[in-house]
Amino acid sequence: MPPVTVRVQPDPFDTAHETALLLRGQDMVGGVGAFTGVVRGGNGLVALELEHYPGMTESQMQRIADSACERFGLLGCTVIHRVGRLEVGMPIVLVLCAAAHRGSAFEATEFIMDWLKTRAPFWKREVFADGRSAWVEARADDDAAAARWDGIVAAAGAELKK
């Protein structure tokens, strides 16, 4: 199996550092797909508070990353998800996918994000400037985005279905 790193942490991540680690010792990588999720503001939102299920979260992230490596022939993959209180504008999630060619790198990055949103046990609470807070509700279009991969990766996906 290619090198897979999954991590849940309150601290910020350093994309350049993580990319260097991912590429260390690799000589067949032609590109790294990278996605950084950021806390989006609007409607008075000041921060998100992220909660997770320790243990299950890491094992689900590992399964998702392994599935991506298998499906897209990745040469390495890093997924880091932050938890705790994250202010508007702060990075929240990092996905790096190393592949021989850009097509697989782009696709795998999107695949991992779609599955993270629907298959990894994280929950967001929105905190607003006036002191209100509310749990974010799951979005039907996230389910739809994740489901479009099912036909392609039915075998790998069956055990991850929520």
Binding site: T118, A138, D142
Partner: peptide, 25 residues
Amino acid sequence: QRFATVAAPIAANDEIAFFPPVTGG
């Protein structure tokens, strides 16, 4: 620590978690 349906069997010493649909990413 694996997603399950309400039909899933349970046994002594199992860890069973209840939560809303996930909203990470």
